[in-house]
Design a protein around this nucleic acid. Structure first.
Length: 460
DNA sequence: TGAAATGTTGGGGCG
DNA sequence: ACGCCCCAACATTTC
């Protein structure tokens, strides 16, 4: 028993100790455990995480290292390609086995395949587990065995399946290695640009995630269905970055909210998260290419200055600008507003959805390839189960409907402080035009007509 | 997880 | 009392 060869637990975006199947398997083996995180070099990965995401990661790794330390263990951070680093670590420590939890993104799956191949060559066992989704792609299938491409039938099939297993508890202690290998630390892996501090209302890491769940469960969830659409109220969970990095698992969240009254519409959102992963799993080209063929012929009108106005929150539409400024300032944006700003970029400004997806990717703490891709394709109308292209948000009406008291716009667009409530979402019609605030970058009615005409060119 | 245009209805003002 | 018009309110269709 004493001379069992170590197991390596390869942490990726499952930065938690509880409900972590790979870690639990290693604990069950009774072998000494080497926990490692491997930071990939940037190389030419099209979807290398942005600075915001990397900043979060750095803090989250510190948190993970701390919890491992509290259990008598360590986090060994290495920089390089996963397959080489893991093979090297195994050689240094005499490890017999590497375990990890799978991810759905194309580049992650490629990486996993390389790891499997390399470990095979060096004679180390490799074993992967599932914990990123509630139900794996391939387990939610139509009666004829196909995969769903529309959400509602997917959701119904999802609910018909047997209940989910209970989450796994966190191990109390972890058997240490006799001698620890060298390691980099969290700061060195993410590069200087990701050193910006995380705003104080966020706490990356498992503990922070659990606190967030508790707060959500104690308050907003009871009114979620209604409150989630009003960006001026704090009626949302703000769990997305924690979920992205796996600081809590979606299964833990699902189980924690199972018996909470009125949690249904939130749980449905969790299934959307699964659905996005399921779609990406079956169609790995989706981050770059529209799912609906005709959209590759869409007459986009790329324009750097319009992109710039959108990114900086200078479009002259208060709700759009508030959202874009919230993103720039905080690395987060309320989901209702994400839909509005995305629709505005794609439809009012005719900028390609990929450009918007890229900006979100760079700026969001919760940037997640599956969710981001599905969201943008959905808004554009080119994705699976897509909103029809002609469904064009009117940013004025959306503002008046969901930010009626102007709380959100006032927070992010201070120039509009003196505009009477009646005109807040259409300040160009106000008796006194606000100073220092741009006029509308496009006329809504004209832009709508133009968007519909552009759409007509690709219709059959 | 729209909005605008168009159609229909019904109550009230008014000649 | 009656018909006519107006238009708000709601429903339907269209993009």
């Amino acid at each position: 028993m004493m001379d069992l060869a170590p197991w390596i637990v390869w942490f990726r975006r499952d930065l938690r100790l509880s409900d972590n199947p790979a870690l639990a398997a290693a604990v069950r083996s009774r072998a000494p455990i080497l926990a490692t995180f491997i930071a990939a070099p940037k190389d030419d990965d099209l979807w290398f995480p942005g600075d915001r995401s990397q900043s979060w990661l750095r803090v989250s790794l510190d948190a993970l290292a701390k919890s491992l330390h509290e259990r008598g263990s360590r986090l060994i951070i290495r920089v390089g390609a996963a397959h080489t680093c893991l093979a090297k670590l195994a050689a240094e420590t005499g490890a017999s086995t590497v375990v990890w939890n799978s991810l759905c993104e194309p580049n992650q799956r490629t990486e996993e395949a390389r790891v499997v191949a390399t470990l095979g060559i060096v004679g180390v066992a490799g074993c992967s587990y599932d914990s990123d989704v509630l139900r794996n792609p391939g387990t939610v299938l139509t009666n004829s065995g196909g995969s769903y491409s529309v959400f509602t039938p997917y959701y119904r099939a999802f609910l018909r399946l047997p209940p989910l297993a209970d989450p796994l508890p966190a191990p109390r202690s972890l058997r240490p290695l006799a001698r620890w290998p060298d390691a980099a630390d969290g700061k060195t892996i993410v590069g200087p640009c990701a050193q910006q501090p995380i705003l104080s209302d966020w706490e990356p890491g498992e503990v922070g995630g659990i606190k967030r769940v508790r707060r959500f469960k104690a308050g907003p969830i009871s009114n979620y269905d209604d409150a989630r659409d009003r960006p001026g109220n704090d009626g949302i969970s703000r769990l997305s970055p924690h979920l992205h990095f796996g600081e809590i698992s979606s299964r833990q969240l699902w189980q924690a909210l199972q018996d909470v009254p009125a949690s249904g519409s939130y749980l449905r959102q969790l299934v959307w998260r699964d659905f996005a992963r399921h779609i990406l799993f079956h169609k790995p080209s989706l981050p770059e290419r529209p799912m609906r063929k005709p959209f590759s012929q869409f007459p986009w009108q790329p324009n750097a200055s319009q992109m710039q106005a959108w990114k900086q929150g200078q479009t002259g539409y208060p709700l759009v600008d508030a959202g874009m400024r919230e993103l720039l300032a905080t690395g987060f944006m309320h989901n209702r507003v994400r839909m509005v700003v995305a629709s505005f970029l794609v439809k009012h400004l005719l900028q390609p959805w990929q450009a918007g997806a890229r900006w979100f990717w760079e700026q969001l703490y919760d940037a997640d390839l599956a969710n981001n891709t599905l969201g943008w394709q959905w808004v554009t109308g080119c994705g699976p189960d897509a909103a029809p292209y002609f469904r064009i948000f009117n940013p004025v009406l959306q503002g008046e409907k969901f930010d009626a008291d102007g709380a959100y716009v006032h927070t992010w667009v201070p120039e509009l402080g003196q505009v009477p409530a009646r005109w807040l979402h259409q300040p160009w019609n106000a008796p006194m035009k606000p100073k220092d605030y741009p006029g509308p970058i496009v006329d809504h009615a004209a832009a709508r007509t133009r968007a519909l005409a552009a759409y007509a060119t690709i219709r059959d």
